[in-house]
């Protein structure tokens, strides 16, 4: 079985590093991007199984990023998880309205992270 590929998009290196650690320990192949634009660039050339994205990012934020991904023909069925510290419901709702599949609340518990990913990925 080939490893699932996860694109992680976050402007915080700390979060990227933690995601990388958790996900690669769980057997995922992890790609990284530091903002939405970089994330889109990765998706232009890469096939991934799931995307985990932050909302607050410079250059292109998570909401725009998700909208852009969904606007791309072959990414309509790509699961996108919103990763955010936002406690208010509105960010989640915005993310979901833009086409987000689900969400993960930071700081994340590794096991939950993995189980949430499996909730949206084959």
């Amino acid at each position: 079985m080939t490893a699932l590929r996860v694109l992680t998009v976050d402007d915080s290196r700390t979060i990227l590093a933690m995601l990388h650690h958790t996900l690669s320990n769980a057997g995922f192949e992890v790609l990284q991007a530091e903002d939405g634009q970089q994330g889109l660039d990765v998706l232009k050339t890469q096939t991934v199984d799931v995307v985990i994205t932050d909302i607050n990012m410079p250059i292109m934020d998570g909401i725009e990023f998700i909208k852009n991904v969904r606007a791309t023909g072959n990414h309509q069925s790509l699961p996108i998880l919103i990763l955010t510290t936002e406690t208010s419901q509105d960010k989640r709702d915005q993310g979901k309205a833009a086409g987000g599949t689900g969400w993960i609340v930071k700081p994340f518990d590794p096991e939950k992270l993995i189980s949430v990913i499996h909730r949206v990925v084959h």
């Binding site: 320990n25 769980a26 994340f108």
Partner: peptide, 16 residues
């Protein structure tokens, strides 16, 4: 945050 090894095929009863 405590990094742990996670069993990818583990059972799913630990939902949020």
């Amino acid at each position: 945050f405590v990094p742990v090894m996670v069993n990818i095929g583990g059972n799913d009863d630990d939902f949020p």
